[in-house]
């Protein structure tokens, strides 16, 4: 098997399906490592990684930090609040200063789409995108697909519905690219106002009826309403959204199919997803979190080489 074909991990679009398979098979090995009493291997002991987060995050940042530490990398953390960014420093200057301290890889989250691409063009270090605006969140898509593969043995041929705020979601976009590369069918479902205009040009089915989506799919990936990204009001009230697009037990029972429930987190319980579904046996939400560390270890390991 050859190496991964990209220098950075900015977008799922840059990866071939062989790259994705390579990441998955490597993640299998790391999953075994993180379930051992000593959850650490020395592979990246001569590498320093900077986690540069211009936007809030708990899961992704913790997951990356754990992945780095379990590979024995040295880790520095940076968050925009309380940094020189508030003093007017530019993105490239901030990162160049971090790199001057001899950092080999940068994991970055930024509120602007394309920020990671821009950074990769302007600095020497390897860049991993941990979410850029409403563009992409490649490691989330990889861990989602990896979790589906773990449950079903394969991704090809499965039907995955992505339900919720598609317009503001980088997770939706990366998931669509990733699932298509692996041969799954994708449907997006949400209110018309939260659906990008030309979404069907990505080759996905579009629905505005959550029941229709659930009747169609094997896996439902339910997304959060990203209130922090919404400048205007896209629907009358959260309550109304829940009424039309919330996934709850009664609805799943009516549909009566064995559907796997996923959510990239953080969940707004009782809004897009009810607790009795989120915590049920159908849900693989916590497997997604566990797999996130293994998949990120694989991505770091393969890119560091």
């Amino acid at each position: 098997m050859s190496a991964i074909s990209t220098k950075h991990l900015i977008s799922i679009k840059d990866l071939s399906s062989e790259d994705i398979e390579l990441i998955f098979s490597t993640a299998d090995n790391f999953k075994e490592v993180i379930n051992r009493p000593i959850k650490k291997v020395p592979s990246l002991r001569d590498i320093t990684v900077a986690n540069v987060f211009f936007e809030n995050s708990t899961r992704t940042r913790l997951s990356f930090e754990l992945a780095e530490k379990r590979l024995s990398a040295d880790v520095v953390n940076f968050s925009a609040s309380g940094s020189s960014v508030s003093k007017g420093e530019t993105l490239v200057d901030t990162v160049k200063n971090i790199l001057a301290m001899k950092v080999d890889m940068v994991v970055m989250r930024h509120s602007s789409a394309g920020a990671c691409e821009f950074l990769a063009r302007n600095i020497d270090a390897k860049v991993i995108n941990a979410g850029d605006g409403a563009h992409e969140h490649p490691t989330q898509a990889l861990l989602d697909a990896y979790s589906i593969r773990e449950k079903y043995g394969n991704v090809a041929g499965l039907k995955v519905a992505i339900i919720g705020d598609i317009l503001h979601s980088r997770v939706a976009l990366s998931n669509i690219f990733c699932l298509h590369k692996l041969g799954a069918e994708v449907m997006v479902c949400g209110p018309t106002t939260l659906m990008p205009k030309y979404i069907s040009s990505l080759g996905v089915k579009v629905s505005h009826n959550v029941r229709e989506a659930l009747e169609w799919c094997n896996v439902a990936n339910i997304l959060r309403i990203q209130l922090e990204r919404q400048q205007t009001r896209y629907f009358p009230s959260l309550r109304e959204y829940t009424l039309h697009f919330g996934v709850n037990k009664a609805l799943l029972e009516e549909v009566g199919r064995d559907i796997t429930i996923m959510h990239p987190g953080p969940i707004n319980r009782g809004v897009e997803l009810d607790s009795d579904v989120a915590d049920s046996g159908q849900s693989i939400i916590l497997n997604q979190v566990e797999n996130g560390v293994a998949v990120r270890m694989a991505a770091l390991y393969l890119l560091a080489n």
């Binding site: 190496a3 291997v41 560091a304 080489n305």
Partner: peptide
């Protein structure tokens, strides 16, 4: 036992080290 993650030639050789399972 797989030794891949413990090797001292990671990032030094031309070939990517592909792990085996433990």
């Amino acid at each position: 036992l797989d030794t891949t993650f413990y090797r001292d030639d990671f990032r030094r050789g031309k070939e990517l080290l592909i792990p085996n399972s433990n």
